[in-house]
């Protein structure tokens, strides 16, 4: 159907990234801001994986009758491995950030970013 999925995937991932950016800029809740960062990460994953996929090629796995590795009918395994690393790091970052949000809520009783004045009180 498509010769290359590049324009479609670029537009979709840019739209998802725009939604996430809007969430980061507009939302006041710290929890929602961190979740919007996760959504932005998933837009990045979609951009990378989708743009290195060519329609008609198979996964780089020698199974179901395929016994040899040939780039003529297999997709590039390198971006998938990179994105696997990125997903794990994204989990680590969001876990640390959300735990800090919980800690902030326990300390102050709110998690609204427009009511943060801890530094102002100290001055």
């Amino acid at each position: 159907m498509f010769d290359s999925l590049h324009p479609l995937i670029t537009m979709i991932s840019l739209a998802i990234f725009g939604v996430a950016l809007l969430g980061v800029l507009v939302k006041k809740n710290l929890f929602k801001i961190f979740l919007a960062f996760s959504v932005a990460e998933s837009a990045l994953f979609l951009f990378f994986i989708g743009n290195h996929y060519t329609p008609g090629l198979k996964a780089p796995i020698a199974a179901d009758g395929i016994t040899r590795f040939d780039p003529a009918f297999m997709v590039d395994p390198l971006p998938q491995a990179m994105i696997l690393t990125t997903i794990v790091i994204g989990i680590a970052v969001s876990a640390l950030g959300l735990s800090m949000v919980i800690r902030y809520y326990k300390l102050t009783g709110h998690m609204r970013i427009d009511k943060m004045d801890e530094l102002g009180e100290e001055q």
């Binding site: 780089p60 796995i61 020698a62 199974a63 040899r68 590795f69 040939d70 780039p71 297999m74 395994p77 390198l78 998938q80 491995a81 696997l84």
Partner: peptide
């Protein structure tokens, strides 16, 4: 290149 040398160097069916 990774796909070419994968069978010789690892014998793993999953290149990723």
């Amino acid at each position: 290149e990774i796909l070419h040398i994968n069978a010789a160097s690892t014998q793993s069916a999953n290149a990723v």
